[in-house]
Amino acid sequence: MTVLKGANLGLMFLLELGVLAAAASWGFTLDANPIVRIIAGIGAPAVFIAVWALFAAGGGKNARYPLTGPWRGLLEIAWFGGAAVLIGLAFAAPAGIVFFALWAINGALRLLWHQT
């Protein structure tokens, strides 16, 4: 069981990286002039990073304003849901749905196993 719990935390880390990749991909693939694409490609991940750092970093232990309980759940839904939407916009809707489903399964297992 320890291996599965470790794999679930590893998946959480990969999903967090996926959020940043989704934000950058969306920004760099916008149908706009190159300057706007560069700003969006760098700025969108920066916004996601700032939100995570302020409210959720390190399972809330390293966050400036740590959220817990239902507030943490709402943050994760918005953060990973936002990434799923951006994946859908940058690539295809099914890819965004798969991303969000992976997060939902990961989140359910983290709750079940009391992981942060």
Score class of each variant (00 low, 15 high):
78 A>D: 02
1 M>E: 06
5 K>E: 02
69 G>P: 09
83 A>I: 10
116 T>I: 04
25 S>D: 10
56 A>C: 07
46 A>G: 06
72 R>F: 01
93 A>V: 13
47 V>H: 03
23 A>H: 03
90 A>C: 08
74 L>P: 05
70 P>C: 00
54 L>A: 11
77 I>W: 11
43 G>F: 00
28 F>G: 12
16 E>N: 03
14 L>T: 12
39 I>A: 08
40 A>S: 03
24 A>P: 14
84 A>M: 10
12 M>E: 07
20 L>K: 03
61 K>V: 10
22 A>N: 09
6 G>Y: 14
16 E>K: 04
3 V>C: 03
9 L>M: 13
68 T>N: 10
86 L>R: 07
53 A>I: 12
16 E>P: 00
115 Q>E: 15
69 G>H: 10
27 G>L: 08
92 A>M: 04
46 A>H: 01
88 G>E: 01
48 F>N: 06
73 G>Y: 05
79 W>D: 03
42 I>D: 00
65 Y>V: 15
80 F>A: 02
52 W>K: 11
116 T>F: 10
86 L>G: 06
104 A>F: 12
44 A>K: 01
71 W>G: 01
55 F>V: 01
11 L>E: 08
115 Q>W: 05
43 G>P: 05
73 G>T: 13
58 G>W: 01
63 A>Q: 12
62 N>I: 00
101 A>C: 11
25 S>G: 10
50 A>L: 15
116 T>M: 14
79 W>Y: 15
71 W>L: 15
4 L>G: 12
60 G>F: 03
112 L>V: 12
27 G>P: 06
70 P>I: 12
26 W>I: 02
39 I>T: 01
104 A>N: 06
115 Q>S: 13
90 A>H: 10
116 T>R: 15
8 N>E: 05
72 R>N: 06
106 N>H: 09
94 P>R: 15
39 I>D: 00
50 A>N: 05
108 A>L: 15
97 I>F: 15
83 A>H: 11
35 I>H: 04
43 G>S: 01
9 L>R: 15
98 V>D: 09
